[in-house]
Design a protein around this nucleic acid. Structure first.
Lengths: 251, 251
DNA sequence: TTGGAAAGTGTAAAATTGACACAAAGATAT
DNA sequence: ATATCTTTGTGTCAATTTTACACTTTCCAA
């Protein structure tokens, strides 16, 4: 084990890791990208885990989170928020398996603090199957997750909570949708995150009133029902609003 | 330097520290408890810093934050929230001075991640002057702080932001006031934290409507004007409310 | 007794919320 | 071509909440 009182280097810091809760939305429900640790987890707790890794001594936390995200999905400049730090002394030991930890180059017996992030990814931009890296990554609907490795279930819950808070006060949902989307999709997204039904008409009225959406002249194609108008998030309008101290995106 | 791949012990973890933003309210404005590093900081950046320390390998983060708080103020079971983790590789080196770092037993050249917490303390419960420990701790009005040691100014800003968010959705302000307080004091508190004026009558109506305050039959004494009725935060009423899924403490 | 200072109180207009139902558009199957 | 299916898209009214605003009361001190 390198001691890290020396020069900055490409050494992994054995005490600090980053875990990412990568949210997606399949147009029906909220999902999370999970790693299947496979047989290596050999009976020691759940196979599924959040993607994460130790940080390098020369990168800051945000960089590390972006790196983890990039290494796994190839995606850069994705919406990313810190959830917080998690660090029971025995968080790893509880349900650990040393082979797995060694495989991600963690010291199995070291005490590790993890800093959790959540990110919002348009699911269309990352299909695990197509990726050469990390073939064992899968989108899993949040509602189907009952347990995860280590303390990752707890982290997921915290991330959901933060996301819920955040979307109540900032219009970040668009990061989970394709550039062009319908109001119904946005509606379902809000319902998934807030975990409660929202009246359709009231939702539309409210979201349109905020005036950060541009309605395109384009319609959905190929749907077996009345096609919906498509909308885009309008960054400029949003910037104007925030600069005038606007604050009420409340849901 | 101990390597921490060994057994759990009372060793300090050289890579992880906890810093506390301890908020108080002097009935006029929001204040923070800061440590004057004094001459030891010998020209290397600001003298004032947030109280903090490295964590022990056998304590979790919340415990560490409580410990820092307790060691400094003698206060226990205080309202405490995590702000988040901060960890530029050079966060200490930027403006550090090694003597100071050594004095708090940090490795001057180690890369340190800090996990920041904020806490709400009734100022009356802690007078730095009266304390035997840490005579160099002072309450400083938040509005007067322009710089702090290390990355502590940044941390303070983040903590203010979190507190602002939080008080909009949960009635935690009482933690900064004496048990018995007046509505005007509460009013000023909200104005300080939200950093904007609130209409007096509207504020009173709203806060009373929520129905988590008990009005005492007691009045202020010795004030050179009409004395105010005193109120208490009513924990039971609050619990009832939250259990019924009440959610709208919005300011 | 008077003056100073903050406490305490009500109302009306405007904005927002919440509840609610049916016609229109396109795709598919017959 | 027609009928059927599915989802889109729309308006109103009542209730509630928000905002703006000014004067009287109470106690202390001079």
């Amino acid at each position: 084990m390198p001691n890290n009182t020396n020069n900055f280097s490409l050494e992994l810091n054995p005490n600090v890791s980053v875990d990412c809760v990568i949210f997606g939305f399949d147009l029906e429900q909220l999902t999370v990208l999970l790693i299947d640790r496979g047989e290596i987890s050999s009976g020691f707790g759940p196979r599924l885990a959040l993607p994460g890794n130790l940080i390098y001594d020369n990168e800051n936390l945000d960089m590390a989170a972006n790196r983890v995200l990039d290494e796994l999905t190839g995606l850069k400049s994705i919406y990313l928020e810190q959830v917080g730090a998690f660090g029971d002394p025995d968080r790893i030991h509880k349900q650990s398996d040393q082979a797995w930890l060694k495989s991600i180059r963690a010291e199995p017996e070291a005490r590790v603090i993890t800093v959790a992030y959540y990110s919002l990814v348009p699911m269309s931009k990352y299909k695990p199957q197509a990726s050469s890296f990390a073939k064992n990554a899968y989108w899993v609907p949040v509602s189907q997750i009952n347990e995860l490795a280590f303390d990752h279930y707890e982290i997921l819950q915290a991330a959901k909570g933060k996301l819920k808070q955040k979307i109540k006060i900032q219009p970040i949902g668009f990061n989970l949708l394709p550039t062009k989307f319908t109001l119904s999709q946005l509606h379902r997204l809000y319902e998934s995150i807030l975990d409660k039904p929202l009246d359709k008409r009231n939702f539309r009225r409210k979201i349109l009133k905020i005036n950060i959406l541009s309605s395109l002249r384009e319609k959905q194609r190929g749907v077996p029902h009345k096609p919906s108008l498509l909308y885009e998030f309008n960054e400029e309008k949003y910037q104007e609003l925030t600069q005038t101290g606007f604050d009420n995106f409340g849901f």
